[in-house]
Design a protein around this nucleic acid. Sequence first.
RNA 1: UGGGGAGUGGCCAAGUGGUUAAGGCUGCGGCCUUUGGAGCCGCCAUUCGCAGGUUCGAAUCCUGCCUCCCCAGCCA
Length: 571
Amino acid sequence: MATKEQDPKTTEGEEISAPTNFVHEIIDQHNQSGRFEGRVHTRFPPEPNGYLHIGHAKSINLNYGTAMKYGGKFNLRFDDTNPAKEEQEYIDSIIRDVRWLGGDWEDRLFYASDYFQQIYEWAVQLIKMDKAYVDHQTADEIRALRGTLTEPGKDSPYRNRPVEENLDLFERMKNGEFPDGTCVLRAKIDMASPNMNMRDPVLYRILHAEHPRTGNQWCIYPMYDWAHGQSDSIERITHSICTLEFEAHRPLYDWFIDQLGIYHPQQIEFARLNITYTLMSKRKLLRLVKDGHVSGWDDPRMPTISGLRRRGYPSEAIRTFCERIGVSKANSVVEIGLLEHCIREYLNEHALRRMAVLNPLRVVLTNYPDGQSEEMDAVNNPEDPTAGIRKVPFSKVVYIEREDFMENPPKQFFRLAPGREVRLRYAYFITCTEVIKDANGEIVELHCTYDPATKGGDAPDGRKVKATLHWVSAAHAQRAEVRVYDNLFTKPNPEETAEGEDFTVNLNPNSLQVIPACYIEPALAGAEIGSRYQFERQGYFCVDLDTTPDKLVFNRIVGLKDAWAKAQQKG
RNA sequence: UGGGGAGUGGCCAAGUGGUUAAGGCUGCGGCCUUUGGAGCCGCCAUUCGCAGGUUCGAAUCCUGCCUCCCCAGCCA
């Protein structure tokens, strides 16, 4: 059915699928022109100053996926050039997350700090070429002379120091002779450039700080701009894929590489991911953690990879999502609904079905023999016959979902109501005969009769019911805590606030609802942490790591689509 | 009012001078159903930021304009 017209071929004639985005299109052009001799080598270059989030997943998927598509290689490299903000904890979490997302760097785990010596030598080379100088201005003075977007900057008074003096000063910077902030090394480019990045950017600053990798070996650290392009060059990266904000830095990276005369990767910029009702800024996510708005980086409401993992989002589904959103240069905001769709789509196929009652209503089957119980066959996954069946115990008293009963149902409601017959899934047809209330008029129990002829859920006389309810036998039920999540923010754009307010005013006070005592079927006892199930008619749930041998805790990953709820909303 | 990017349906996104302007998500109908789930079928841009122009023919080429994003860290 798919038309297979002219699949592009490599020079070897081996088939490569058609370009799926503009990045691949550029690579195809390079492969045609022979720019990189057919090599494709990408990398994911995080700074270890926070946890990865789903926006990073898009980047990892693009970089790793691209390498795989072209039979190339993929590196993981930490851009650890600022010891003031970076920590080993972040390095560890990032490694774990990239691996979990399926990225495989084989033996190519690198650090920009691995290249500090080389980068230092290149700085010396630049000084010798009279293309860099030590500037003793303060940060404020540098800023004052940088000019503005519309006015050119002015040369630093230190700009024309002799090469020998610069060499000496830079050496002494490295040797720790100056306190932090005394001076910096700057590139000598053009203070009048319309591109602000070219106005003599800072290359090195003095930072007497302990580095997670290099300890106290260095007290000068290269700026990202001075380290990043060269790191890619050292690793012989072919395509340096990065986000849009670095587009204006590309001329600078090109200038460095051309001055140094070293291998030249091609930088390609794409638009970062934004998702409705969530934040993607590392700074703001850090704030949520530090200020205790969430329980940690792995709070199941966080868009961090560790949060999504704990919530129960399968990495396969996250990957599908990353494929489906596409890659372009247009700033965009993807609806959270698409992510949830991908999660449901995967889990529908893979999650075992179980029955669990979150908000129980006791039902007594008045004509069912006292003390009797039997085992019903239940399908584990209707989408996957190989998942088999299980036994579910049934007895005289069962719990059903409170919202599956209405005393005075509207015409659209076809679940249980007085005098009405419905099916208990895999069990029997039951008919509600009596509603028991307490002194306050609260419904505390239902009396129903069951039809023994409908065992398994089918009526031999062919009569139909309009609803099938999930249930749990009271005598066999296990207890569990269930945590139901909603969006962390109440607005599609959490950054949208009134003057003087910040994004925390948009925090959703109902983003976490804990249901301490739910009833679950016995097959769920001993479920492993991280395992995922569909609770029939409710949604997908994942065993949380707070689970202990005597207390199961489930996270709701995502609810099932609910036509009844939607109809209610419409009124 | 410098420089660099981007504008295709509610949200993403294909499209690279000749197609009825892909596809997915959402939404809306209907079928089916022992999950009001899943699945299946159908509908949803005479128009591509706007205005001109070139052409037999323009989302695609040209000109002008509008809107949005990024850049003035010793952050990345």
